[in-house]
């Protein structure tokens, strides 16, 4: 690891002015990806601006039928939050399945969403539930947020402050883990919302995406057997040692079925 300066601002304003000053700096929002990259000398920021001192950024609030999760809320706090468990149980389960216990007590929803790792779980929930990403500047719909491999709609100097999830009729998330890394080789989030079914797939491609053909079939009939096979073309998917594109395409169907099974509580 290269040497760096560490900052721990206590207000969002201080954080933003530090971000503006340190062009080679990085935001530390849990550090479960960034610190690993720094240890391997793949990332060498001059400054780390740790958001964990900003109290307003952590916490879970219920407003009407939506749940707003502060950007610095740890996965373990989402996993164990009574409101989340009651209102969007699939989200609590998803959070409880990220990484391991240590990761879940350090990693944050804002950090995960901003990183847009192609194999991360949270983007599937954000896109699958049609959440809204709240930043210091604006509100961004999930459908407009994830742009590609480690790429989002966030602009320079823009920080995620919270993610707002609408409650849905029912939802499920199943991931098939990469045997080595335990990241999602394929993860499918299925949600039955008032506006139809949303299906988000993570792990399979360079960025989380919606499986529209499966959504259509499930909107007609929300049942595991309604999930159509072979709707995702393999040539759009990732291939690596643990999963060819063909295997991933197949797993999307299988995981979608299992996510629906979970959602309907069979």
């Amino acid at each position: 690891m290269h040497a760096f300066s560490y900052h721990k601002p206590s207000t969002l304003g201080d954080a933003l002015s530090l971000v503006a000053k340190q062009s080679e700096g990085k935001i530390l929002a849990g550090g479960q990806s960034l610190v690993q990259a720094m240890k391997l000398r793949l990332a060498s920021p001059t400054d780390l601006i740790d958001l964990s001192g900003i109290k307003d950024l952590a916490g879970i609030k219920v407003e009407g039928s939506s749940v707003t999760i502060g950007a610095m809320t740890r996965h373990a706090d989402v996993e164990n939050n009574a409101d989340v468990k009651k209102m969007i149980p699939a989200l609590a389960r998803l959070a409880g399945g990220i990484g391991d216990r240590q990761v879940r007590h350090m990693g944050t929803i804002g950090g995960s969403v901003a990183n847009s790792d192609p194999a991360a779980c949270y983007p599937a929930a954000v896109l699958g539930l049609g959440a809204t990403i709240v930043t210091n500047k604006r509100k961004i719909a999930a459908d407009d947020f994830f742009k590609g491999l480690f790429e989002t709609a966030l602009e320079t100097g823009e920080l995620i402050t919270a993610v707002t999830f609408p409650t849905v009729k029912r939802a499920g998330y199943i991931k098939f883990k990469n045997p080595a890394s335990r990241f999602a080789l394929v993860g499918v989030f299925v949600a039955e919302t008032s506006g139809g079914v949303r299906v988000a797939v993570t792990g399979a491609a360079s960025c989380v995406f919606r499986a529209t053909a499966i959504e259509k079939a499930l909107t007609a009939k929300f049942d595991p057997d309604a999930v159509p096979a072979d709707t995702i073309k393999a040539d759009t998917l990732n291939a690596d040692l643990h999963g060819s594109a063909e295997y991933r395409a197949h797993l999307i169907t299988v995981m979608a079925k299992r996510a629906v099974t979970q959602a309907v509580g069979k």
Partner: peptide, 24 residues
């Protein structure tokens, strides 16, 4: 069931060079 060292046949690079790819 899990472990298996793999080299890239073209480049001779070790593909399973970390726990991200080598399954302990």
């Amino acid at each position: 069931l899990l472990e298996g060292c793999k080299y890239d046949p073209e480049s001779g690079q070790l593909i399973t060079g970390s726990y991200m790819d080598y399954t302990m």
